[in-house]
């Protein structure tokens, strides 16, 4: 359905924006390494089923892309552009995010199996793993416009999944309460950022016409 496709595209676009930002500026300043490492964990734990179940070519290719690109970004940040990388401001206590997500996955899952627990863990972790990035943004005070576009596209992706879940509930009679709950939490975390982004975009491109 349309929401699902739009969500996936916006997810794809967010990563392309991120890669382009890093390659063009030859720097990773303003980007949280912690958030990027958490994304590697999110994608690897969620897409373990790549090895066991086949959904579609589209599905497999996207999963491989998300795993590969997240690992690539971490490699860029830690190896290639390491010299220019300042980590002193990227100090969000990540252990609470990982620990909290793990507890949530033990409390909420569809089956008590290794892969289902990891899958649930990845949903909760994804919902909160932008926090170090938002924290860094707040600490540095200013951000390159491109970094905010990245966060916007990333937030939009899960927000678009919400109408997709409604659609699936009515058309396929399927309800994935775990995805919906984690997705709502994720969108809530982004909502403050969305508001600021919306205000700035309106200010810069809408009302300030000469």
């Amino acid at each position: 359905n349309l929401f699902r496709i739009a969500g996936d595209i916006s997810h794809l676009v967010s990563i392309l924006i991120l890669l382009q930002t890093i390659e063009k500026g030859k720097t990773t300043s303003g980007i949280s390494l912690k958030t990027q490492i958490l994304y590697v964990v999110v994608f690897v734990t969620r897409y373990l089923d790549l090895l066991t179940t086949y959904v579609s070519l589209y599905n497999s290719l996207m999963k491989i892309f998300f795993i590969a690109s997240s690992v690539y970004v971490v490699w860029l940040m830690t190896s290639k552009y390491n010299k220019k990388f300042k980590e002193d401001q990227d100090v969000f206590p990540v252990k609470y995010l990982v620990g909290g997500s793990f507890v949530m996955s033990l409390l909420f899952h569809y089956k008590f199996t290794f892969s289902e627990i990891l899958w649930s863990f990845s949903l909760w972790l994804e919902a909160v793993c932008i926090l170090p990035q938002l924290f860094l943004l707040q600490k540095t005070g200013e951000a390159k416009a491109i970094t905010t576009h990245y966060i916007f596209a990333l937030g939009l992706y899960r927000a678009l999944y919400i109408p997709n879940w409604f659609y699936r509930y009515y058309s396929e009679n399927r309800l994935d309460l775990l995805s919906v709950s984690a997705g709502l939490l994720q969108t809530t975390i982004y909502s403050d950022f969305f508001y600021v982004y919306y205000q700035k975009v309106l200010k810069n491109w809408g009302f300030n016409l000469p």
Partner: peptide, 10 residues
Amino acid sequence: AEASPNHDEL
């Protein structure tokens, strides 16, 4: 509705 994980999603 059938309560099950949407494993076909990303």
